[in-house]
Design a protein around this nucleic acid. Structure first.
Lengths: 342, 342
DNA sequence: AGCTAGCGTTGAAGCGTTTCGACGGTGTCA
DNA sequence: TGACACCGTCGAAACGCTTCAACGCTAGCT
């Protein structure tokens, strides 16, 4: 193992000088810097992470707590996890993956052991029991999702309200008047209300403003449940010409069911999905969709936590900030003007 | 911050005694053990990770290197990552997430800094440039996937050859004679040949033994490409009655296309998918599928690396081992007896 | 010329663990 | 009764880094 002392000896300086060259915390002459750098390269020196963490009381690790549950659309979680990891690396941090089945105890463990300098929590519930722990330990954290009480913490999330509103506006602009909103199974609304409810609320409000009639129906995302949901929708509101699909699993079945029931998309009915563009592109017809960038979510979360860590180590008190990412509507082939009334 | 010295003082013993109680590396009297344990609990002591890593030269961290690429079916990767994380916790390890865009340099960084005790590499290519680095650094590692030269390393993977054979056997048993194998886009075969090619090879061999005629056609997984692929299949072999679908993205489109072309599943044609059960359940009809457990893959990978770390710290030389996980065939509604010849 | 200011560098003191060797005390055996 | 082994505990020395106080220099000022 190559230590800082080896580098110092090789470069003919003291180990503190090597440390300062590497951290840039003190002025070092150009000449010395050059020599040290080349010794580092030549010996293949990498600072020992444990020693560094012990001495500096910073591990340069961010913990990312991901949900175990898999009813949220999984690729999105993975995309966030990966963008967090790459963004963190760009700031000199590594990412520790922990699952939220460790619960509040996990947060305590990570914070108290100094394993991570800060946490990013995914899948935050409105009233999340990890938050008091965070506060008690004085740990820096960023939440992905919105909690009831985020004093002293950062939050970032998609602007789901705006996403819902975009759907309503788009269909209203096309002249649709009766819309069905195909949601998640009822369990999702009960639990992490944030995500699912806010989209629905945004849609509902804008739909009201635009004079749309609409129905919200839950759906588990399987073929059978989608069939049941669609049947109920058509029974209750035969004049429905627009569909907003929140549950990614229901998209495929819905398109199949519409086709087999003799409804053509987009001539007879329009379909707009709340899902990743990649998924929207896979169907026929390609779907008009409202999307938030999972990548940006991860990036912003990292920037928030890194910012907090920087100001807190400067003795400052980071202010709570809350970022809402604007979703985008991409019009594809699945939405068109409402059919003329017979 | 609570240190081991605080605990020692509180329990009226020396800090080395506390350490031995916690690690169990020396005999400690029942009475002392009890007192120390209760002090630990009372003070909420968690050992400092950096100090521990420095002194013991083990970080109790396993690094997991995941692919950035997203053309592999992403939920599977996430499932592996999560099962690695939970399995690691059960052995007292945490998981550091790194992306393989760091390449061999990333492996060197992690190993040389002592950040992680061992690595798990996903998405290993046959001739992977990270492997020589691993060997040079003497780092313990487990590969998920099979490399050409895995001397001194552990490997674990699904037995894709067996998976392919299962498909062929099942269709042969049902009396099918002309089969189409719907694969991935050609890029996948060129690159991480392992996964895709081995399934195909297993299918091909068994199909030959069972006297099946078959066609392998690539497919990008979009609706359009699936339509193209299917059209070619039916043009080349109008008598095809069995489909094996390797590309998850092609499943939905294929079912739709079969239906619209007037072919009923499973009465006219049988479809068997190589995908997770969860996905197979989502279609109508529910799909007969061959699956390997991603969860088990993660668990076995962790057990391998933890085993290697244990024997290497005992001064032993861990032997290379290679685990192949047996896939399972679940018969659902999409396969049935071959139709009688007209 | 004498004084101060700042620059570049160093030595040494931690950071909180683990672990080795040593040390009493107790029990066992001759 | 003395020698010996073992058990439970302790003190102190690492582990490799960061960072503080201090130092010798040179430069700029009066």
């Amino acid at each position: 193992m190559v230590t800082i002392a080896d580098v110092a000896r090789h470069a003919g300086v003291s180990s503190s000088t090597v440390s300062y060259v590497l951290s840039g915390k003190r002025a070092i002459s150009e000449e010395t810097r050059r020599r040290v750098r080349s010794s580092v390269r030549e010996l293949g020196y990498h600072p020992n992470a444990g020693a560094r963490a012990l001495a500096a009381r910073r591990s340069h690790i961010i913990a990312l707590m991901v949900p175990l549950r898999t009813d949220v659309y999984v690729p999105v979680m993975m995309e966030i996890a990966i963008s967090v990891t790459t963004a963190a690396r760009q700031h000199g941090y590594d990412v520790l993956l922990i699952t939220n089945d460790e619960g509040p105890g996990g947060v305590r463990r990570i914070a108290a052991s100094g394993l991570a300098d800060g946490l990013i929590l995914m899948d935050v519930e409105l009233d999340d029991e990890r938050i008091p722990v965070l506060r008690a330990q004085g740990t820096q954290a960023t939440l992905i999702g919105l909690a009831d009480d985020a004093r002293g913490l950062s939050c970032v999330d998609h602007d789901f309200v705006a996403a819902g509103a975009l759907c309503a506006d788009h269909l209203a602009d096309l002249g649709h008047r009766e819309i069905a909103f195909i949601g998640y199974g009822s369990g999702v609304y009960h639990r992490h209300a944030g995500y699912a409810e806010r989209t629905l609320a945004g849609f509902r409000d804008r739909a009201g403003q635009r004079g749309l009639r609409f129905l919200h129906r839950t759906c588990e995302g399987t073929y059978e449940s989608t069939a049941g949901t669609l049947a109920r929708v058509l029974a209750d509101r035969p004049g429905t010409t627009g569909f907003v699909v929140q549950n990614e699993g229901a998209i495929g079945p819905l398109l199949t069911l519409l086709r087999t029931s003799g409804r053509t998309v987009p001539e007879d009915v329009s379909v707009i999905a709340l899902c990743q563009d990649q998924l929207a592109e896979q169907f026929a017809p390609r779907l008009t969709a409202v999307t938030g960038s999972a990548q940006e979510l991860g990036r912003v979360a990292v920037e928030q936590i890194v910012g907090r860590l920087a100001t807190s180590s400067d003795g400052g008190r980071p202010d709570d900030d809350r970022a809402l990412l604007t979703p985008t509507l991409t019009v594809r082939e699945s939405t068109g003007s409402a059919p003329l009334l017979p």
